[in-house]
Nucleic acid binder design. Sequence first.
DNA 1: TCCTATT
Length: 376
Amino acid sequence: MAVRLCDVASLLRSGSWATEPWTGQVIAAMETQLSNGPTCNNTSNGPSTISNNCSSPVESGSMEDSKTNLIVNYLPQNMTQEELKSLFGSIGEIESCKLVRDKITGQSLGYGFVNYVDPKDAEKAINTLNGLRLQTKTIKVSYARPSSASIRDANLYVSGLPKTMTQKELEQLFSQYGRIITSRILVDQVTGVSRGVGFIRFDRRIEAEEAIKGLNGQKPPGATEPITVKFANNPSQKTSQALLSQLYQSPNRRLDNLLNMAYGVKSRFSPMAIDGVTSLAGINIPGHAGTGWCIFVYNLAPDADESILWQMFGPFGAVTNVKVIRDFNTNKCKGFGFVTMTNYDEAAMAIASLNGYRLGDRVLQVSFKTNKTHKA
DNA sequence: TCCTATT
């Protein structure tokens, strides 16, 4: 299922635009996903834990721990609740799904919850979707701990760390105070060298408090300078500057610009407004239907499923929906499916990259969906 | 001197 995508990477590498910087990111994204497969500890974009606590319930939580409720971390900023539901719904029936958003701005906080009807589907989701690359993110899928006030505000900011200290050493230093959920050392983007600052998220706030008492102002073993340990800034304390810059980077602006350049269409920044404008103007744009750009994928194998479509198209950008068309009686794929993507340029890049791609012994045909039944 | 993990 997760097979053969490395072929895409080599295909991309040999392609003419494989030298563009962000294409390289896509390749790197795919290679990470495909060589490692879904893993607990993530690669470049998110904090990770070294200890094996990625999905294990708290020991003391015992029977209370849900086996159907998952927390999904490191979601792309522009991923919506519907996309989340669509992605995880490809595994099994979902009881409920929630993307957590900032109360004031409504912006995604980059994580959410998916509660399945069947515990087996929750387990399957962890096994198949944890570590999935979506755009620049590697999502993390694990069991949600029972919600309680005691697990909130347990994130510590640590500074003054020796530049040589590894993430593992950082965890070793803090693990005496409790169960570490995530840890991270920030590094210089260019050199990759430690910036001497990092984060430790504990399971419970009291553990974090004890770690501050025990380690703030102390010198780690072998260090010459003391470290500072304090509670990390709360995301809600983000400056309005940062919020404005986030809003400014809304991906719809790019679609807006593209439409403007290609068709002279003036539109607002929401897909609804764009649909309204394009339909009013009587413009027929191939593949542009409803909430995004619909892509036709032909020559899928009979056993193809939705997850292969997510895996193929996800790395190129925001995917809102995937569908494998199946025979009603046999439930086998009829050889084709559809993928909806939000942004035109990402959809175009996915088509350019995946059209002609060999999936198993089949050569896929990938294009914008045409509307052959409604000749206007 | 701040990565975004508890609805």
